[in-house]
């Protein structure tokens, strides 16, 4: 007897991906589109880049649209969700991805930056969850995937409040998972390690100061990744597709670390 072969298809589903103009968000939008989902591409201010993401989504023969909103503003998030429902009919998948990382150390942060990072990274995720829950409740089904980080576990040593926001997201996911399970909504997180993305907001990530890059430091850097490479956005997109699929219906409140094994070294 032949086993039934079933692919991971998201045909007919609608996904909303925040911060999808570039980087991991773009990679997630493209992979969702390749599985057949229609994708609402959110970003706050990178309109040109968002159009490129939309083009790539369409090349994957899926429909989609761009919805500008600042996830830190609850009213804008509410309006965004209403517009997605108006334009695409429903929301099956929310991917909370929009985040900032100013790369400030403990002593370099000020009040305003603390509030800003928390507003976007942590409260922004909450705003989006609060806005989509009524829609998903109505559908008796939903998938929420939150981009966390290996830095919800391991400190960064270069951005204190970023790590604090990821620690908060860990608990937001766990609390949401047990509270929203009754509506058929699952909530999970992915913990990416280093992923090749475009420019981030803020200072460049100070891995090694340029004047201290030596043959030895290069060798050490390469040895931080057991699989021999850093991540690419599609690595993360594949996991989102799985978590968003019908096959993942029993998984909630879980974290999948995707870092090529680097956290183990």
């Amino acid at each position: 007897m032949k086993a039934e072969v079933k692919d991971v298809s998201l045909r007919g589903k609608v996904a909303l991906v925040t911060g999808a103009a570039a980087g991991i968000g773009r990679g997630v939008a493209i992979e969702l589109a390749r599985q057949g989902a229609r994708v609402a591409i959110n970003d706050v201010d990178r309109a040109d880049a968002a159009h490129i993401t939309l083009q790539m989504v369409r090349e994957a023969s899926a429909d989609g649209g761009i919805i500008q909103a600042d996830v830190a503003q609850p009213e804008q998030v509410q309006a965004m969700v209403e517009e997605v429902v108006r334009r695409l009919g429903r929301i099956d998948i929310l991917v909370n991805n929009a985040a900032i990382q100013p790369n400030l150390g403990l002593m370099d942060y000020d009040d305003a930056w603390f509030d800003h990072v928390m507003s976007v990274n942590l409260l922004g995720y909450l705003n989006c969850i609060q806005a989509v829950v009524p829609v998903m409740k109505g559908q008796r089904q939903g998938r929420i995937v939150c981009m966390s980080s290996v830095h919800a576990k391991r400190p960064t040593d270069f951005d204190t409040v970023y790590a604090m926001s990821k620690g908060g997201i860990k608990m937001l996911v766990r609390e949401s998972a047990i509270e929203l399970a009754q509506y058929g909504i699952t909530v999970n997180m992915i913990e990416p390690g280093a992923v090749q993305v475009g420019r981030k907001i803020g200072n460049p990530r100070p891995i090694v100061p340029p004047d201290r890059v030596t043959e030895e430091s290069r060798r050490r850097g390469a040895r931080k990744f057991p699989l021999g490479r850093v991540g690419v956005p599609s690595d993360i997109g594949h996991i989102v597709c799985f978590l968003a699929s019908d096959e993942a219906e029993f998984i909630t409140g879980a974290a999948i670390r995707a870092d090529g094994g680097s956290m183990l070294l």
Binding site: P155, T156, T160, A163, K166, G167, G168, R174, E175, E179
Partner: peptide, 27 residues
Amino acid sequence: KPTGCAFSYALAQGALQMLCKEAALEL
């Protein structure tokens, strides 16, 4: 561990744990 009743408290506690680890390095 999630509370199932006071999630804002849990969020803050998750953030506090990461502050501890970051500050342990820098300080």
